[in-house]
């Protein structure tokens, strides 16, 4: 078993950030977007560009919590043949060279349901996945994936949102591990941004309920926002902005142009400046 002994890669990452005295940059890309090779090339280069953690989206035909940018990313990936098997393979290849950067798989339940929850947990552990975020599995449905994942040593990262009231918060935090992902707006990805003061208040409130690191996502697009958020929380998540950069590097037929990875990495480096 490759079960995380002592400090898991994810816990180590947040400890290192704490020692370095800075917040982390979490970057999201969709596995296989816009095609398997370009996507892997970008994934491989993200840590050197400045990503401290990586969220890798598992493409789904019906991403209900995502805005147009990430919806399109899923569509592009699926059109180019993305699948759960390929996503896991991508992580395995990444992990062969990078033993340090945590990878969180993020997505919706149905592709896992079809793959088989037990098989998914087993294979994800095997290839070196550190945690999962499943948007449509609230604590009310913990039995079939959350419990087996935690037992196997996969972190279960839960979303807390502006609608999560105090009465509900303990239930949401109960089986959360690794870190808490605070969704800064009531809304979908890639649409609007919350005011820093509002986020600050929410994060201070959350800290009274948990000792886990806190990451903030939704609506974070610029180095300035990253700086602001990492001054408040332990990490900032950038998704739609990076995915939009990928879309900007496609030709008229939707094929990756030669500088896609370069340009996307340049954006990540600029965003990472916000954490220093």
């Amino acid at each position: 078993m490759s079960q995380a002994g002592g400090n898991s890669r994810l816990e180590q990452c947040f400890m290192d950030l704490s020692v370095a005295g800075r917040g982390g940059l979490v970057t999201f890309i969709t596995a296989g977007d816009p095609d398997p090779d370009s996507s892997f090339e970008l994934l491989r280069r993200l840590p050197a560009a400045g990503a401290d953690l990586i969220e890798l989206g598992m493409p789904f035909s019906d991403p209900m919590a995502d805005g147009p940018a990430i919806q399109s990313a899923s569509q592009r990936a699926l059109s180019a043949g993305a699948s759960m098997v390929r996503t896991l393979d991508m992580v395995a290849r990444f992990r062969a060279d990078d033993k340090k950067t945590p990878i969180i798989l993020m997505g919706y339940y149905n592709p896992i349901h079809r793959y088989g929850p037990a098989r998914f947990v087993n294979d994800a552990m095997q290839v070196g996945v550190d945690g999962v975020i499943i948007v449509d599995l609230p604590p009310e449905e913990d039995e079939e994936l959350c419990h087996p994942a935690l037992t196997a040593g996969l972190h279960w990262i839960r979303l807390v949102t502006p609608t999560t009231g105090d009465a509900r918060l303990p239930l949401v935090l109960k089986n959360t591990s690794g870190f808490v992902y605070y969704v800064s707006i009531a809304g979908i990805t890639g649409t609007r941004s919350a005011a820093a003061s509002t986020i600050d208040k929410a994060i201070k409130h959350l800290r009274r309920h948990t000792d886990l690191p806190l990451a903030v996502g939704f609506g974070i697009n610029t180095p300035e926002q990253v700086a602001e958020i990492t001054g408040i929380a332990d990490a900032a998540v950038v998704g739609s902005a990076l995915v939009t950069e990928i879309a900007a590097n496609l030709d008229t037929k939707g094929k990756a142009m030669p500088r896609l990875a370069d340009n996307a990495c340049a954006l990540v480096s600029r965003l990472a400046e916000g954490t220093r």
Partner: peptide, 12 residues
């Protein structure tokens, strides 16, 4: 059946 929705919607 069940309630497979994002956390934002759960309280609603």
């Amino acid at each position: 059946g069940g309630r497979f929705v994002a956390e934002t919607l759960m309280p609603l």
